[in-house]
């Protein structure tokens, strides 16, 4: 187990991405603007925002899918684009939103696990590989006899997602970027996936948890970064940002979230005839 020190792992500084299209670059869409936040080692940070808030853009930039228009991202103090690809992905890994899409249908799932081991460890004896695979399958609560040797379409979304987490455990990166990892999972299995993300954290792996679901963010995160229309509107410890926010957008967002134990009170507005609504595009 690695010691959890408070060192800064990922430093995002004034990150900006503007999408342009057309040969003359006439159409501009702001993906994100001036985004800055920090992820410490072993910390779970949630990037919370509605669709179009820019959170997926930030995640894609951190995963080096494309380059920023401005700003920089530092991993362990070094710009992420200066790392050779293999060295970077040894430190930063991803858990996907759609577990069914993340597996190649033509191969058994074992291949994904073996490649994960081969990624960092090169040649490893078969017996040792099998032992490590059994170990991580146990950690994510998967029965080896139920999943090994199977094809992806024979397993459930929850099982596939756990396999992806097991894969991350085998690679042991410093940071895992999880973009809406539970949105395609049955409600009754979601809790398991979230709990296994805690298992990653217990091994010293930091997690960037991207979601629009306030409840999940409140459950899992140490720190919350709330985004709206490409900018960071509030960030800080999760207990503070999600339970006593200061920014008006965050306050409205949280009041709009339906709660199990409370009912929205529309009595004031139901008396009148006109509702305040959002405007058409």
């Amino acid at each position: 187990m690695r010691a959890q020190d408070a060192a800064v792992l990922l430093d995002v500084r004034q990150l900006t991405k503007i999408y342009t299209s057309g040969y003359l670059k006439t159409t501009r869409v702001v993906g994100c603007q001036g985004v800055s936040f920090v992820v410490k080692r072993g910390e779970i940070v949630t990037l919370l925002g509605e669709s179009g808030s820019g959170k997926t853009t930030v995640a894609n930039l951190i995963l080096r899918i494309f380059r920023p228009t401005a700003g920089e991202i530092l991993l362990d103090g070094t710009d992420i684009f200066s790392y050779p690809p293999r060295a970077y992905y040894a430190k930063v890994q991803q858990v996907f939103q759609d577990p069914y899409a993340a597996f190649n249908y033509f191969y058994r799932i074992d291949r994904v696990l073996h490649r994960a081991l081969a990624f960092k460890n090169g040649r490893m004896a078969l017996t040792e590989r099998q032992a490590r695979i059994m170990e991580v399958l146990d950690v994510v609560g998967l029965n080896a006899s139920e999943v090994l040797g199977r094809y992806p379409h024979q397993l459930s979304g929850g099982q596939l997602q756990r396999l992806l987490i097991a894969r991350a455990l085998l690679i042991e990166p410093d940071l895992v970027v999880a973009d809406e990892p539970t949105s395609m999972i049955d409600a009754s299995s979601r809790a398991g996936i979230l709990n296994h993300l805690f298992d990653l954290r217990d091994r010293g792996i930091a997690i960037l948890f991207i979601t629009h679901d306030v409840g999940q963010a409140a459950y899992i995160a140490d720190k919350a970064v709330v985004m709206h229309k490409g900018k960071v509107v509030e960030q800080g410890p999760a207990s503070q940002v999600l339970f006593s926010p200061t920014h008006p957008y965050v306050q409205k967002l949280l009041s709009d979230v339906p709660k199990l134990r409370e009912r929205w009170d529309f009595s004031q507005e139901l008396g009148t005839n006109v509702l305040l609504g959002d405007s058409p595009r």
Partner: peptide, 13 residues
């Protein structure tokens, strides 16, 4: 653009 290609890329292929 599919995710399994992304997976291969981040596995160092």
């Amino acid at each position: 653009e599919r995710e399994f290609v992304r997976l291969a890329k981040i596995s160092g292929d």
